[in-house]
């Protein structure tokens, strides 16, 4: 089994989908000749030609609008927005058309398309290149939102997203693009959008994270065991919307304690939704208030300070300890 980084795994997923289904096409800024600024689409133009791997003009709104139109016509477009900070240029097209056209057309035009975008901090990028705004899309009815946490889940989730009959926002944690390698099997493992994965079993506390925050969450779990003999269960959310309430509730019902981690701002963030669901379904099992370890409600700091903004294993351990010590 070849070891791949996330960029290679995403490239493999696109390659296999382009090969297997001639309705699939890729479009975006610099995706064809350049192979994408992160090289996720490298080599696809040479294999599939410029009708299917399309360099577009620089207009995020029209990229998404055009992709929606292609989906109306029956294609399965995968649109790349170069950085998630630029997706806001396309907010109107996402909300008015991508998310709504199935409904507005009374079911005639299901919008089977994917919007890929790198999100999150940690790569010393200039302003507007480090945001984590998945909550916007989770708040938008009609969309699905997924975020992988490593090469293998990136590859499997991208297959699932392209297969899906509904529009999917696919956020890629760019800090992980080349951070580590994993075994990626030749054929994708079928995973359903809407399912979380238990990344580490435990009984004392539940840590819920996704995307790039899975790394500090797993590191915190290991330290909690090594230093405090605490068995933390770590859940990789994978699908932000729909959310796998059942897996979250089952875990917290077992452990009674929970910390939720994300790098986006706290107010109305994904953690707030997770906590509300746990309160609704597992309140009587809770032994302590659920803690949030998140980004702050400020603009993402210029990169010389970003390491202090982003949640890390130490902060997660502190929050876990407070939760564990609550009586």
């Amino acid at each position: 089994m070849p070891k791949m980084n996330m960029v290679e795994a995403l490239n493999l997923a696109l390659d296999q989908n382009l090969a297997n289904d001639d309705r699939v096409c890729v479009l975006g800024e610099d995706v064809a000749v350049d192979g994408g600024v992160f090289r996720v689409t490298k080599g696809l133009l040479e294999k599939y030609g410029e009708d299917r791997v399309i360099d577009t003009p620089l207009a995020e709104g029209a990229i998404i609008g055009a992709a929606v139109g292609m989906a109306v016509y029956g294609l399965r477009p995968v649109a790349e927005i170069q950085f998630s900070g630029f997706t806001l240029q396309a907010f109107d097209q996402i909300e008015q058309n991508m998310a709504r056209l199935r409904h507005r057309s009374h079911g005639r035009y299901p919008i089977s398309m994917v919007m890929r975008a790198p999100y999150g901090g940690g790569i010393r990028a200039v302003e507007h290149h480090s945001e984590s705004r998945e909550a916007y899309w989770a708040h938008t009815p009609g969309l699905k939102v997924v975020i992988p946490s490593g090469p293998r889940s990136a590859r499997d989730l991208l297959h699932a997203a392209i297969d899906d009959s509904d529009p999917v926002i696919f956020y890629e944690p760019k800090a992980l693009y080349r951070a580590f390698r994993e075994d990626v099997p030749d054929q994708p493992q079928k995973i359903a959008i809407g399912k979380a994965q238990i990344a580490r079993q435990g009984t004392d506390i539940t840590l819920i994270a996704y995307g790039a925050m899975m790394r500090p969450a797993l590191e915190a779990a290991q330290d909690l065991k090594d230093l405090h003999s605490i068995e933390a269960e770590v859940i990789d959310l994978l699908s932000i919307s729909p959310m796998d309430t059942q897996t979250l509730v089952e875990s917290v019902s077992k452990t009674g304690r929970c910390v939720v981690v994300h790098e986006g701002p706290r107010c109305c963030g994904i953690a707030a939704e997770i906590i509300a669901r746990i309160n609704e379904h597992a309140f009587e099992h809770l032994l302590a208030p659920i803690k949030r370890v998140t980004g702050y409600d400020i603009h993402f700091p210029y990169f010389q300070c970003e390491q202090h903004y982003l949640p890390d294993a130490d902060t997660i351990i502190e929050a876990a300890n407070e939760t564990l010590q609550y009586e």
């Binding site: 109306v72 294609l75 097209q93």
Partner: peptide
Amino acid sequence: VVGSHVPVAVGVAMGIKNR
């Protein structure tokens, strides 16, 4: 929403051409 449908219309036309 005024004008919001026009990029989608172009996308359909691109789809027609593409196929």
